[in-house]
Design a protein around this nucleic acid. Structure first.
Lengths: 231, 231, 231, 231
DNA sequence: AATGAATGAGAGTTCATTCAT
DNA sequence: TATGAATGAACTCTCATTCAT
């Protein structure tokens, strides 16, 4: 009754609907987004929507799944060339922020998903977290980080990334915010993401210390202790 | 055209509406919540609502403001007796999680606010963050933590608290989640909040290290203590 | 959330909706009838409908119930003055046909109810049938009719009345129908109903005989046997 | 613009559509039935439907026509071997009930047809009635029944059959119904139809008497036989 | 201060039908 | 002959809001 297109034309239409949905959801959020808006954006009739999706919720969940796949891809892709744990972490966060900057939908959609589709929300977070867990477990076993519990610390990293991403990528550096003034005034951010360098560095330094990781270039046996010496 | 009640009866009605709204918003989210439901829960007629609030948005924003005031109160109250920075931090997080456990509305409402009232959302986060900034600035000047940028690190702490709160307070410890298995199986959480002790301790250790703070029981002259000296 | 009006105005509106619904259902049948049509006919807004009825089905069922009550009232009322069983039967059918002529909705609605609300349909028939059963049981015990099973014969009477009503009241006497030509050409029907006299008399004679009832003015002891002698 | 298939394959497809339609209409009624459902049940694409039928109404009317032909066939077939009028009547009703039991569609569809296609409905009834009229006219001329008006009595028989069929074939014997209790408890019905024997016998006795026909086993010179002589 | 009837725009969804392939 | 994508009007139903009482 719905779902899989059987011709090339159908495939194209379905894809256009998904694109339109991402755009509309990002702009107005789940509940303000309407099928009319989505189909208008996709340039098809309302009825066409129901040829491929059985409800607004269904396309939403597919979209969350899709974005999740893409953000994870962006993160692993970014981290691909890294040789040390911490480099990989840096690259991963960079990838995350850049993806967020390019697809603000991710953030907006995911946060609202709490009410719309709790299961989709959990799956999204859990999948990303699982990636962190893998990396952290390996790093711990290699002595690259301290004796942390990866299943917990992964959520911490997730929280940091999400909040920093919201604050600096989504809101931008022009937000009135006493106290971080220095950073605000410097909109020069590396890459395409809008996280100012100082913010990114502070964040990475915090994480590194938090993980009990040796500073870059420091012999591994001094790990946590000598973290202060760098810079 | 609305707003301030002029009699004691009116004051009571208004309060009942706010209470009902918190409950209804927490249960269904902003857009699913309807005035009918709120007025029903408050035991008044639909028209009565508009005697005290000019729109659904208005009561929502007032509610966010109210919750924000209360969560900050809970945090400072909890931290009141603390003598060291880290103790205060611990107590603050404890207070935060406990409040969240008792008022899941906070989380749910705030996360959806992104689309409903971005300004309310920002105000909420900013106010909490400002509290962190104050504490962190003082701590840095006292040498209790490393030479961090409080305007950035505050957001990091916010992110950690929010994600851990979502994961363990809102979702509970019974969520399937490979990797943090040990923690999951131990639902003994201190206080009324549902964050398992191990999770809480891991989080605090991460934060402490991240801040460049001396580990508890560690002689202050060592490693982390001097973190502030750099730069 | 729906149903009972609390003011005189509300009561009036609800009644207008029911009236409009009867009219619209009679005209177009259940599925072609739309809430728009009903509310337009009632002169209220669409939303108003849902103040008093939670769905099209609900108003339909209430209407069937209502019509059922009224048709039974019309039948018993008509039969009130009758002294013998057969007189009462005659009067009852007369009442039935007259009501049908004035409220064609009854027929149309009830017949379509098979798909819409089987329970309402059954209740409708069962209630009328129960009336027949009572009358027939008494008549049998009095020796006014033969040794029939009232629980079966009642349905037979129901069927006769319904079909004759459909054929002559609803379709009218102007229907092309070879074979009953004589009756057709005589549109003079007693009372306000449109069942031609000959049809009514044939029907009553059939029923009388079928019941094993003595012809009017015949001593009861000859009951079935001498039925032929009358006229 | 549509209609007649030109190949064997087309003929098969058309037949499959009709079959599917009967099934779907019987299940959901006319308005709830959708072309999608019919085509799905038939295993063809939606567009294919319009190759053979120009509209939903058209297939409906063809179906009513078809069923009408078949039910009449079933009735005449069943009555074929009968030697007396009353035997033939019995057999005819048996055939009718059996057909109804096997094709509940007949009932359901026909009753809803009132709104969908009044002309089809009338044609359906009229044709069956015409069969009765023929039989009754002959019987009357032969003195097998009283001096009835076949054009009227035929409709009476139709009504009896329809109501008994609805009550016992469609609803079944397990319907709560005070008064006919004895019959309910005996689900042993002859043939494949579900009309209990007692119900069938009561019905036939009623009809026989109503027609002024001699009871079976009654010497023809008595009572009912001479009913025709009156007037 | 409080009520609850009334509104009407707009939501999601269905479906008979058309048409290019 | 057969497909299935596409249409768009129509449907039922919801809800924030207004207003007479």
């Amino acid at each position: 009754m719905t779902d899989a297109p059987r011709t090339a034309r159908g495939t194209r239409t379905r894809a256009r609907l998904l694109e339109a949905a991402e755009q509309v959801f990002a702009e107005c959020g789940y509940s303000e987004a309407s099928i009319v808006r989505i189909t208008e954006a996709a340039g098809v009739a309302q009825g066409t929507f129901y040829l491929y999706f059985s409800s607004k919720l269904e396309i939403f969940e597919e979209l969350v799944e899709d974005l999740n796949r893409r953000v994870r891809h962006a993160m692993t892709e970014a981290a691909a060339g890294a040789t040390t744990r911490i480099e990989s972490e840096r690259a991963g966060f960079r990838g995350f922020f850049e993806f967020t900057a390019q697809h603000p939908a991710l953030y907006r959609i995911v946060r609202e998903a709490e009410f719309v589709s709790p299961s989709a929300l959990r799956l999204h977070y859990t999948r990303i977290v699982d990636g962190y867990i893998d990396g952290l477990s390996t790093a711990r076993d290699n002595g690259e980080v301290g004796d942390i519990n990866p299943g917990i610390v992964a959520w911490i990293l997730m929280g940091i990334g999400e909040m920093v991403g919201m604050r600096w990528v989504l809101w931008g550096s022009d937000v009135a915010d006493d106290g971080a003034a220095g950073a605000e005034n410097d909109p020069t951010a590396s890459g395409t993401s809008r996280v100012p360098d100082e913010v990114f560095e502070q964040m990475m330094r915090f994480i590194q210390r938090g993980l009990g990781a040796p500073a870059p270039g420091t012999p591994p046996e001094h790990a946590q202790k000598t973290g202060k010496d760098r810079t």
